[in-house]
Simulated assay, not measured.
Amino acid sequence: MTAACLMTTYQPLVLSFARGLGTRLWDQQGREYLDAVAGVAVTNVGHSHPRLVTAISEQAGLLLHTSNLYGIDWQQRLAQRLARLSGLDQAFFNNSGAEANETALKLARLHGWKKGIEQPLVVVMENAFHGRTLGTMAASDGPSVRLGFQRLPGDFIKVGFGDLTALDTVTREFGARIVAVLLEPIQGESGVQPAPPGYLKALRAHCSQRGWLLMLDEIQTGIGRTGTWFAFQQEGIVPDVMTLAKGLGNGIPIGACLARTSVAKLFTPGSHGSTFGGNPLACRVGCTVLDIIEEQGLLENAARQGERLLARLRVELSEHPQVLAIRGRGLMIGIELATPQRDLAERAAREQGVLLNVTRGKVIRLLPPLTLDSKEVEMIVRAIARLL
């Protein structure tokens, strides 16, 4: 197999898969692997789930695309389901997390325009990651993401993640221009960094008091990853805007931006759109994913197995000199190491038959399917202990 005709935007392992089922993948030679990455928090209900296979096959034989020039029944159904689960009111569907975040940023701009703010600002977080479009890169942090792409569009102010004092400082300095705060409840690409307890609740109060939008990027954390439908629910708040993707489609491309009615109505016909967004196939898959999570009790399983995995990792690794911290929520867990371990993912696959991800060079990121069981928890713990 040659990748000579592909642009060099990735550095994939010399490993390719032929099929998957549940939490397992098989390579071209037939070797089995336990998937503790889930396509980077995508295949939440596992590979080749029979309900999804049936839904995809049936819908492909019925209708794939008509465009948003016409009503799409499955789109309306999925919007209603997500609104009911989240406490938000309306949805816009597109094809990816970056597109969903672009939608949120456009709503923030319109919110500022409606208030007569000519140069609106959005508060974002240090070490955040929101996508790879020019707008979402501008809202993200990290020189490797931005290298070669200056000057980026948009007006953003970065503050320390979890730092309320820094938020007060920018409020005093730029408060008249600020229209929104955008953040991840748990920073995934930056090494699974959860927001401090009470931080989201304090942000909610801060935004409500000043008429700012609280916009949460739940692209990695949403759809059950942290043990609840959405991570914000663990803080007892509701944002004004939320973005989703990844686990919503279990591998079929889909993104969604949900908002309160007062925010959603800032869009008018022609002010935003998507050729493929909200197509019948993607939205039927989204509805089926929600059905599977509910019927199989996967929220409860993610919380239970996540607690078990955290506890076992802490028992096995807490005294290891390479391990600085073990943190996470539900089945979103990071193990921070003292030094970079850039070949760890390759060694894990080759030596242990376990797929894991290393982000920021030295944080092992675990994002297994929500169907993970206790035996597979032990397999992951043993594999990492042996590798370290």
Rank of each mutant, 00 (worst) to 15 (best):
T275Y: 13
G278Q: 05
E218N: 12
K246S: 14
R260E: 10
G249R: 05
E300R: 13
T288Q: 14
S262H: 14
R210F: 08
Q296P: 03
P239N: 01
T275V: 12
M215H: 04
G211W: 14
N250M: 09
G211V: 08
G224L: 06
L281I: 14
F232I: 07
A259T: 04
G306L: 00
C207N: 10
E218M: 05
I254E: 09
G273W: 10
W212S: 00
A303Y: 00
L309P: 01
G236K: 06
M215I: 14
D240P: 01
W212I: 01
F276E: 13
Q233V: 10
T228S: 10
K246N: 12
V289R: 07
V238M: 11
P280A: 07
A311N: 14
G224T: 06
Q296G: 03
C257P: 05
G306H: 00
I237V: 09
F267D: 03
A205G: 06
I237A: 02
A311I: 01
C287M: 08
E235Q: 13
P280Q: 08
A264M: 15
T228D: 11
G251E: 10
V263N: 05
L203M: 05
T243V: 15
E307N: 04
V289M: 15
S271F: 06
E300S: 12
Q296S: 13
G251D: 06
W229C: 01
N250I: 12
A205I: 12
G278T: 04
G277C: 10
A205E: 15
K265F: 04
L310E: 00
G277A: 11
L309A: 02
S274Y: 06
L309E: 00
I237H: 01
M215Q: 14
T261C: 11
G222N: 01
Q220S: 15
G277N: 09
W212L: 05
L266V: 05
A264G: 15
V289C: 11
S271E: 12
A282R: 10
V238E: 08
W229Y: 09
I293C: 04
G227P: 02
G227N: 03
E218S: 13
Q234A: 10
